[in-house]
Design a protein around this nucleic acid. Structure first.
Lengths: 201, 201
DNA sequence: GGTTCTAGAACC
DNA sequence: GGTTCTAGAACC
């Protein structure tokens, strides 16, 4: 992919380290990594390269991790630890794309497309409503965790059934009571009051 | 801690790389790491050290990770990747014990105590019956996962209460029915059959 | 069992 | 949000 026409100008207007971010700017890690590659462009000519954009410009390669860690990292970050750098790349969703080289790629990390950096976000805060431990449990719902819930739901269903049955029986007895009372009422009214009839309620 | 008296002899009898393991021997990773330290002892004198036992002899320090990765690792392992080496150390339960140095320790990894190596085991196969995702869910039971169960249990409790209430009402109506029937029976028997009395059931 | 890539979690 | 230490998981 060819860089846009403003690519050369863009380098001049790139955020420098320590510059206060007046506008919405990408995470420092991304800007700094981009800076490293832009500024290494010149250094490549007169020596063996430490780090550079890959051929396609859609990723980069750390050709010399040792040199990169000792020289480049402390210049841009607060450490000289290559694995910390890799950890950050993973946090932002970069993928290692070659088995024999330290080559990393991200869809939005391309030579000449600094403005795409702000579209790169940390992977951490993605499934906030559905974190990893829930994913894991989701997979095992049917086995362990939902076992209890399943028992409870079963019990629940049975209780509802019992309730319905009881309500139906109750309705039956209420109807029956009405009929009995009617019946009794007729019986009594047609023969007058009887001392032998007990109190009902 | 001073090494045992047999320490010097022990080095001579240590397992060499490629030697066939006739007896139960420690994992290759541990033997090789131990070898590296033993054999580096001599190299330390005539140059800056790359890796060595720590002062106490209860751990070791990789003084120069870059040199260590490029020179030592390929000599003993099938890679030159420092993070792979560290991953193995963690697998076997080593801890990084200094914040500014690549110093690692393990209770059973001590200068002069090669025979302790076979007591070091992989951490991997420990909680097979209770893996991490269950641990995680365990910690969050009370918040999310048991939330559903809590709702179900609450519903359950209410259903039981309703059931009891319905059963009591039902018992009341059954008693009432008996009394009404008795009453009606007396009423009828004392006056003979009446055509006006409707069917009850 | 070893190597690689990535992520979790604690701490800063 | 960055840095560090450690672990999970896939692949070899």
């Amino acid at each position: 992919m060819a860089p846009p026409t403003g690519a050369l100008l863009e380098r001049g207007t790139s955020l420098k380290i320590g510059q206060s971010p007046r506008t919405k700017c990408p995470p420092p890690f991304l800007s700094k990594t981009y800076d490293i590659l832009e500024e290494e462009e010149e250094a490549i000519a007169n020596g063996q390269r430490i780090v550079s954009w890959n051929y396609e410009g859609n990723g980069f390669v750390v050709w010399n991790p040792a040199e990169f860690s000792e020289v480049m990292l402390p210049r841009y970050f607060k450490h000289n630890n290559f694995s910390s750098f890799v950890r950050q790349l993973n946090t932002y969703g970069f993928k290692k794309t070659a088995s024999k080289r330290w080559e990393f790629q991200h869809d939005k990390f391309r030579r000449g497309y600094r403005h795409l950096l702000h579209e790169i976000t940390r992977k951490k805060c993605e499934p906030s409503a559905f974190p990893a431990y829930l994913k894991a449990s989701e997979e095992h719902k049917s086995t362990t965790l939902e076992g209890n819930a399943r028992v409870l739901m079963e019990e629940n269903k049975n209780l509802r059934r019992e309730r319905l049955e009881l309500q139906m029986q109750l309705a039956h007895f209420k109807t029956l009571e009405i009929k009995l009372l009617e019946c009794l009422s007729q019986c009594i009214s047609s023969h007058g009051h009887q001392r032998k009839i007990p109190r009902l309620c």
